Amino acid sequence: MNTTPTIDVPVQVLSGPTVLIEYAGLRILTDPTFDEPGEYPVMPGYAMTKTSGSPLGTDEVGRIDAVLLSHDEHDDNLDRSGRAFLPRVPVVFTTISGAGRLGGNAKGLAFWDEATLTAPDGTVVTVTGLPARHGPEGSEPVSGDVVGFLLTAPGHPSVYVSGDNASLDYVQQIADRCAPIDTAILFIGGVRHKPMLDAQLVTIDNTQATWIARALQARRVIPAHFEGWAHFQGTREDLTRTFEEAGLADRLTYA
């Protein structure tokens, strides 16, 4: 795996899972969520509450060359404004099932599938779909499909985007094939939805994030999807403390 540790890929976490990555001259956005704070009903008697919005709106985020959409079925990963934004982008990489639902410019990536983007200077950027599961084994009928992503290009550091993954087994598979990873953007949150899946984790928690940092040999870990919604567990201070106690404080970067 080609990594260039002396180059920091510019990354800006805008809101929840929405991250702007400037990679090899391309501007890539993950899981677009631009709605104002509010409630999103999930089922009778249960709603998700968004507590903070994005500092940039859809008209302010600028040119986006591609979207990496981990999944399209949950409002905290693709809200109303984000969904309306997708047609403005040349290509949206997502799950196979999600591409079928979205149509248009959506391209489904199965696990380990590859696609390419061409940067303005001609650099070929490879986008690899990576294994992910949004909950415990067998949870897909409830939580839906999800996919992670890896960005690689000659002379550029590798960037991993976890998506809403809760499977450490899948992370180990990624580590076996792709480590070391330069920059790991981890969707953390430690989410447990009590009405569903017996309150088991549907995204990784802080301790698991430190395990992943080690498994991937990540030089830099950027947390995302851990603030801005009421169902996320813990605080930024909790996450910082967990990395400090694990001896990994030098890898944790808030973007």
Rank of each mutant, 00 (worst) to 15 (best):
Gln200Ile: 07
Gly228Glu: 12
Gly190Arg: 07
Leu216Pro: 08
Ile222Ser: 02
Leu201Gln: 09
Arg219Phe: 00
Asp205Leu: 06
Leu197Pro: 09
Ala209Gly: 11
Pro195Tyr: 10
Gly190Leu: 13
Glu227Arg: 15
Arg220Tyr: 02
Leu197Arg: 10
Asp205Gly: 14
Ala218Gly: 05
Ala209Tyr: 12
Pro180Met: 00
Cys178Lys: 12
Pro223Gln: 09
Ala230Thr: 06
Thr203Gln: 10
Ile204Gly: 07
Met196Glu: 08
Ile188Arg: 09
Cys178Gly: 05
Ala230Pro: 05
Gln200Ala: 15
Thr203Gly: 10
Asp198Trp: 03
Val221Tyr: 10
Val171His: 04
Ile204Glu: 04
Ala209Cys: 09
Ile181His: 02
Val202Gly: 01
Arg219Gly: 14
Gln217Asn: 13
Gln208Asp: 08
Lys194Arg: 15
Val221Gln: 11
Asp205Glu: 12
Val171Pro: 00
Ile212Glu: 03
Trp229Val: 06
Arg219Lys: 13
Gly189Met: 12
Lys194Val: 14
Lys194Glu: 15
Thr203Phe: 03
Asp176Phe: 06
Met196His: 08
Trp211Leu: 14
Ile181Lys: 05
Ala184Trp: 09
Ile188Met: 08
Arg192Met: 05
Val191Gly: 05
Glu227Ser: 14
Thr207His: 10
Gln208Thr: 13
Lys194Cys: 03
Arg214Ser: 07
Ile222Tyr: 02
Gly228Pro: 02
Arg214Gly: 02
Ala179Trp: 02
Thr183Leu: 13
Leu197His: 05
Trp211Glu: 11
Gly189Tyr: 03
Gly190Asn: 11
Ile185Trp: 07
Ala215Gly: 06
Arg214Val: 10
Arg220Phe: 02
Leu216Glu: 08
Ile174Leu: 01
Ile174Tyr: 00
Ile204Gln: 01
Gln173Thr: 10
Asp205Thr: 13
Thr203Asn: 07
Leu186Arg: 04
Ile181Phe: 05
Ala213Lys: 06
Ile222Arg: 03
Thr207Asp: 14
Thr207Ser: 01
Trp229Gln: 08
Arg192Asp: 01
Asp182Gly: 06
Val221Arg: 06
Ile204Asp: 01
Arg220Gly: 01
Thr210Val: 11
Lys194His: 11
Pro180Glu: 07
Thr203Lys: 13
Pro223Gly: 11
Gly228Asp: 11
Ala230Met: 10
Ala199Leu: 00
Arg220Pro: 00
Ile188His: 03
Ala179Lys: 10
Gln173Ile: 04
Val202Leu: 09
Val191Asn: 12
Val202Cys: 10
Ile181Cys: 00
Ala213His: 07
Asp176Val: 05
Gly190Gln: 09
Asp205Asn: 14
Ile181Asp: 01
Val191His: 05
Trp229Ser: 02
Ala184Arg: 06
Leu201Ser: 03
Gln172Asp: 12
Asp198Arg: 08
Phe187Thr: 13
Thr203Ile: 12
Leu197Trp: 06
Gly190Ser: 08
Pro195Val: 08
Ala175Glu: 11
Asn206Phe: 15
Arg214Asn: 09
Leu197Gly: 06
Arg192Asn: 04
Arg214Trp: 07
Ala215Ile: 06
Ala215Val: 01
Asp176Lys: 03
Trp229Phe: 14
Lys194Pro: 14
Ala215Leu: 15
Gly190Pro: 04
Ala199Lys: 04
Met196Lys: 12
Gln200Ser: 14
Val221Cys: 13
